[in-house]
Simulated scan of single mutants.
Amino acid sequence: MNDIDAWVWWLVGAAGLGIPLVITAMPEFGMFAVGALAAAGVAGLGFGVVVQVLAFVIVSVALIAVVRPIATRHSTQRPQLRTGVDALKGKQALVLERVDGSGGRIKLAGEVWSARSLDNGRAYEVGQEVDVVEIEGATAIVI
């Protein structure tokens, strides 16, 4: 196998590693594909098989060692900006109609919501401020 054939084979290997990347969504295959591209570049510059394999291994391992922990950390982080009903939890609301275990109305984030008390034996009168602990459908659960 001459030098031109070597870089072509490395490109074929990179494309071959790209297929399972797309099918399985495992980023490690992409990192190996980048290693194969690096080996193709080294082969294109005329270096021998040993240097090509070393380039493949070094680039692939470096990417897995550096990129994978960063990607894992980002995938396990909670979003800093809460949106939707998650943003309403913990907010204060104003009671518009008496709220007890069976229902009532509150003003939450500028909108009128149906609400009920978390504790069925507890009631909140008009004008009181309550805290939203949960949203169930279109009903705010308050304390």
Rank of each mutant, 00 (worst) to 15 (best):
D3N: 11
D5W: 14
D5N: 11
A6N: 06
W10E: 03
L11E: 01
L11M: 13
G13R: 01
G13A: 15
G13C: 11
A14W: 03
A15H: 00
I19V: 15
P20G: 07
L21C: 08
V22A: 05
T24V: 04
A25V: 11
M26H: 10
P27Y: 10
V34C: 07
V34H: 05
A38Y: 03
A38V: 15
A40V: 05
G41W: 06
A43W: 04
A43S: 12
L45T: 09
L45E: 00
G46A: 07
F47Y: 13
V50N: 08
Q52E: 15
Q52C: 12
F56P: 01
I58K: 00
V59N: 00
V61L: 14
V61C: 04
A62R: 05
I70D: 00
T72E: 11
R73L: 09
S75C: 01
S75Y: 09
P79L: 14
R82P: 01
T83V: 15
G84H: 04
G84A: 11
K89F: 12
K91Y: 02
A93L: 06
A93F: 09
L94P: 04
V95P: 07
V95E: 09
L96G: 03
E97V: 13
E97F: 02
V99L: 04
D100L: 08
D100W: 06
G101P: 10
R105V: 05
R105M: 08
R105C: 00
I106L: 03
K107L: 09
L108T: 10
L108E: 04
V112A: 09
V112W: 02
S114K: 13
S114M: 13
S114T: 13
A115R: 09
S117C: 13
L118A: 13
N120D: 12
R122T: 14
Y124H: 14
E125L: 10
G127M: 05
Q128R: 08
E129L: 03
V130T: 11
V130H: 10
V130G: 08
D131W: 00
V132H: 03
T139R: 15
V142Q: 03
I143Y: 02
